[in-house]
């Protein structure tokens, strides 16, 4: 039978794990999205060489599993002299992952910019950078905002794998608890519930931010 009371003594472990996951998600989302926006710009407006390099990066990341990228960074890189803590390795893996996906997504948004927007900015004397940041970027991101939100949530959920290189995240806590009290199913069920809660809160937070940033839209 299910027995959740055996989990109560480990509330602290779960909370600490949860906090680590939240922390990792926050940083990686921020860095990943910024990097994604930069790479998307390079891919969309850069020279064909730059665009080519970016698309090779994007395809490499998108077509290999996250766990393999993580193992490569954590186990592989030290052998060529790059030593990383589990936390650092996990963080890097999350950032390069999110950056690759958001590059694709943001680029699609940039692609929908009507030519007239660029022309209007040009005749007003705006530079490329000014046009990009002040005119083009916000409406472009708005178009793909739901997809971007989903991708950030997917990366957060994917971070469960960081437990495999001993990053003390939520899944690591669940592993630890179930190894002590042998209530595996209950531990993982609670943990899954916490992830679900995080996912729902994250979507809510994105929607709230979205409403502020895209407040120029007339709400129908």
């Amino acid at each position: 039978m299910l027995n959740f009371s055996d989990l109560l003594p480990y509330t602290d472990q779960f909370l600490k794990g949860l906090l680590t996951t939240v922390e990792l998600t926050l940083y990686s989302t921020l860095l990943g999205l910024i990097l994604g926006a930069v790479l998307a710009t390079a891919r969309q407006y850069g020279s064909s060489l730059v665009a080519g390099v970016v698309s090779v990066y994007v395809e490499l990341i998108r077509n290999t599993p996250f766990i393999v990228q993580l193992f490569f960074i954590f186990f592989g890189l030290p052998s060529i002299g790059v030593m990383l803590s589990p936390w650092q390795a996990g963080m890097i893996a999350m950032v390069i992952n999110l950056a690759a996906y958001s590059t694709e997504i943001i680029r699609a948004g940039l692609g929908t910019t009507p030519k007239g927007q660029w022309e209007a900015a040009k005749v007003l004397g705006l530079s490329f950078k000014q046009t990009l940041l002040r005119v083009v970027m916000v409406p472009a991101v708005e178009k793909i905002y739901p997809a971007l939100t989903s991708q950030c949530i997917i990366v957060m959920l994917g971070s469960a794998v960081l437990s495999q290189i001993s990053v003390p995240d939520l899944t690591y806590a669940a592993n630890l608890v179930q190894s002590r009290n042998f209530r595996s199913f209950e531990s993982y069920l609670i943990t899954a519930g916490l992830y679900l809660l995080l996912a729902i809160l994250m979507r809510k937070a994105f929607n709230m931010i979205g409403r502020r940033v895209f407040s120029y839209r007339v709400i129908k």
Binding site: L157, A160, I200
Partner: peptide
Amino acid sequence: EVFQGTPLLMQMFLCFFGLSM
């Protein structure tokens, strides 16, 4: 919502330990 909102790894653990339970 549940299967898109939880890690695949968790789903695997739950299938593994749940079925054995």
